[in-house]
């Protein structure tokens, strides 16, 4: 795989997660959206749904978010979440 993603999850009250990831899956307004390394620059609004970040094959984080935005630029994924809850 070509490199990895540098991922950060932000909430109004602080940074929730920051680190390398191999795959990010978020719930956009019109369906699920997966981000792999090398993705084209993207800005999207997120809907209500799960947010999943795979750090490695065996390690992943999940949250439930109720809205927000995701920006992808040069293997950097930033998620600004509105209403965020850790599910596992």
């Amino acid at each position: 795989m070509a490199g990895s993603l540098l991922c950060s999850v932000l909430s109004p009250e602080g940074t929730i997660f920051e680190g390398e990831a191999s795959f990010v899956e978020a719930h956009a307004l019109d369906g699920r959206l997966g981000i792999l390394p090398g993705h084209a620059p993207l800005i999207t609004a997120l809907g209500e749904g799960p947010l999943r970040i795979s750090i490695s094959d065996s390690d992943e984080r999940r949250w439930q978010i109720s809205g927000g935005f995701m920006e992808v630029l040069k293997n950097k994924v930033s998620i600004v979440a509105e209403g965020l809850e850790q599910t596992s």
């Binding site: 956009a28 307004l29 019109d30 959206l33 084209a40 620059p41 993207l42 800005i43 999207t44 609004a45 809205g67 935005f69 920006e71 630029l73 040069k74």
Partner: peptide, 18 residues
């Protein structure tokens, strides 16, 4: 402004929420 961003679903909608 590195290239054009893909804007999902539409720039208006994103700005309207942002």
């Amino acid at each position: 402004s590195v290239g054009e961003f893909i804007l999902e679903p539409s720039p208006e909608l994103i700005l309207g929420r942002l």
